[in-house]
Design a protein around this nucleic acid. Sequence first.
DNA 1: TCGTAAAGCTGATATAGATTATATTTTCGT
DNA 2: ACGAAAATATAATCTATATCAGCTTTACGA
Lengths: 236, 236
Amino acid sequence: MKKDSHSTCESCPARQEGIFCNLDFDDIVDVSHHKITNKYKKGQTLFVQGTHPFGLYCISSGNIKLTKTGVDGKESIVRIVHAGDIIGHRSLFTDEDFGKTATAMEDTEVCFIDKKYILSLIQKNPTVALNIINKLSRDMGHAENKLSSLHQKNVRERLAELLLSLKTTHGVKEDGRWRIELKLTREEMATMIGTANETLIRFMTEFKDAGIIEQEGKVIYVKDEDELLNWANIHY
Amino acid sequence: MKKDSHSTCESCPARQEGIFCNLDFDDIVDVSHHKITNKYKKGQTLFVQGTHPFGLYCISSGNIKLTKTGVDGKESIVRIVHAGDIIGHRSLFTDEDFGKTATAMEDTEVCFIDKKYILSLIQKNPTVALNIINKLSRDMGHAENKLSSLHQKNVRERLAELLLSLKTTHGVKEDGRWRIELKLTREEMATMIGTANETLIRFMTEFKDAGIIEQEGKVIYVKDEDELLNWANIHY
DNA sequence: TCGTAAAGCTGATATAGATTATATTTTCGT
DNA sequence: ACGAAAATATAATCTATATCAGCTTTACGA
């Protein structure tokens, strides 16, 4: 965990994506003075489920997975976040312990903003509050979609949904197909849709055989997104 | 849907529970002037999934279920809300269509606050914003708990969790046992934990046989909450 | 209050997906 | 570059729970 005090919020590549997007320049400079930037290597944890929060994490680069450990020690990925996302806010505002563990999936740059400062910023700056409300609302929507997906869909449909959502969040169009710019193990993917990794692999193979996806090493390509929508049982 | 313009926010029994709890008296009177109170009968819908929101609903009495309909028309209960809760805020702040349908589970009194007014109130009153953030954060926590529950637990464990949570939200202590003050069909309970109603009934019978719960008509009593914690596989 | 529809219950059967086992391939530290 | 450990793949069972079917009880509108 190295410190890097040179980068600023004004120059943050994720500035326009995050909750500080519509802040005045002076205000963003002020935020910059109240943050600490850290670099995390792949596999390092930013915080651990059950511990107490003391500020807000604002991601400027890299992917971070949020996992929840059950009583039996089984881990499942609840969410994957990246540049412009904030994490730790939920526990911060409710004053509860962290409900999840945050782990860097690759080399990552994350800014940390002290609790006191962020609370005063919200008081002073209603747009920041509205941005946080907006973010939480959208996250809530996603969580509830996942819930009803788990209730109502089978593993094949959920896998199709997962691939579609990875395509949206981490996909790059590349000669007629989408390359998913995020390396996940089969085990990790399985925990994202609540299944066993053997089952996931089986359906991945089915999708490959059907020509819907392709695979080169750990990289997944989505070839036919319309067919994926069909398999996910989504119709517009 | 009858109007009732007599009741005020100042005198609302749910005032201390909701997002307006720490507002000055003058401000609450102002809120009162910008709300419309409606009464809904059992089974009536407040809003329907897929339609567009135009304000915030603030519940002053009665229980309301929020359901999500899948592609095949299967409905599942995502959440049950009551006095002091707000609904419709998620879609309101993200400007998306309603993701769920809200239906009164019994005769209900609900206040409606116009979108413009609530947004201006947030701008003016940071505590309201913080209260909404707090509420969303807690809801988010619950949603993610449910998610990992669905991933990691079996039906028996999920039913035990459901009974525990109903005990907490709608339970009344009554000579050594908890009476759950909320009438749900088995079908509804089944959709809350993502199972078939036959399966749910089967486990309910198991719980009754084990002496953990009792049943008189539609009313459920929780007799042994420690045992329920065991069955839910929760250990503190 | 009667009759029909909805809800509750129970048993039998079917099946999606977990589990177990084994083999192969990839990754990574030294 | 090599060997151990982790990840991937596939097949063979097993099991939790869905589905189907039939019956009983409760709720409710005319």
